[in-house]
Design a protein around this nucleic acid. Structure first.
Lengths: 146, 146
DNA sequence: CTTGCTGCAAACAGTTTGCAGAACT
DNA sequence: AGTTCTGCAAACTGTTTGCAGCAAG
């Protein structure tokens, strides 16, 4: 699975005439090993422990490549950081975001997806992607915070 | 309708012990007269034509107040600017965003809202708000762009 | 007169960019 | 060798903050 993704990225890189570099390999490896929704900074810090010397700029630049290659997707929550999540082939998930502890739970709901298709059709829209985020307090935070 | 909103804000301001100032009145007026999804900069420019001298900071600060008062809602699209939209009492709408011409169509779907409630309940989540954006091409752009 | 609000400018955070040198092909 | 990629630091953008003066209560 991770191997497939690496291959997919390499194919993309080859088709674009991009060079294969140590940095991109490292970043790809670490990105693939992260939980969902890494922010650039989180990823950068993770990378730095095993590979000091890789700079912010490279991480930013590489993540954009991942997005371009279809490997990752940019998501905007409300914390002022751009986050990147893994794109799983065919699969789509949405997010429950806890505003208390910033934890994120994923879910999928086919009915919602279908309704979205219907709505889009109604407006003559051709869906390319979508994003559904529900904000609130998770069960833990409901109890601990007044 | 606009008057109601002004009153609503004034009630909020009073309850919080906020002062009533010329600037806040102006910003409120102009915000209420804008189309949906104004960015801070757009609003600021609009304000400046009739009221030069009102600074960025005040616009930012005031918009946060509007959010706090329940009058406005922050939305994050993918253009690096925070936008604010009007909150209509009781109503909630989601967005169809055209990536071709950046037009935004709003829609509402009760079933989706209900499904969200169910999903949240399933995870012990207390919903505070949510955001659903569908990205794609509107009917115009489907035809003009390959 | 007291306190909150404003405007300005400086500070900030996240992200992007220019450039010289390093690395890939 | 030629060109892309990298790391650094500086530049940028959108937003926030500190503060002195202004204005509302």
């Amino acid at each position: 699975m991770i191997l497939e993704k690496k291959k997919a990225f390499n194919r993309f890189a080859a088709s674009k005439g991009l060079r294969s570099t140590r940095q991109r390999d490292v970043i790809l490896d670490i990105f693939l090993s992260t939980h969902q929704h890494v922010s650039v900074e989180e990823l950068y810090l993770k990378i730095k422990t095993s590979n000091p010397g890789i700079g912010h700029a490279t991480v930013y630049r590489t993540l954009k490549l991942f997005v371009e290659s279809g490997l990752a997707r940019e998501i905007l929550l409300h914390d002022g950081q751009t986050r990147y999540e893994h794109v799983m082939a065919g699969e789509h998930h949405d997010h429950l975001v806890c505003t208390g502890c910033n934890s994120i739970v994923e879910f999928e709901n086919e009915t919602i997806e279908k309704l979205q298709d219907e709505i889009a059709a109604l407006h003559g829209f051709m869906i390319r992607s979508h994003k559904l985020e529900i904000y609130g307090l998770c069960s833990d935070c409901r109890n601990t915070k007044s």
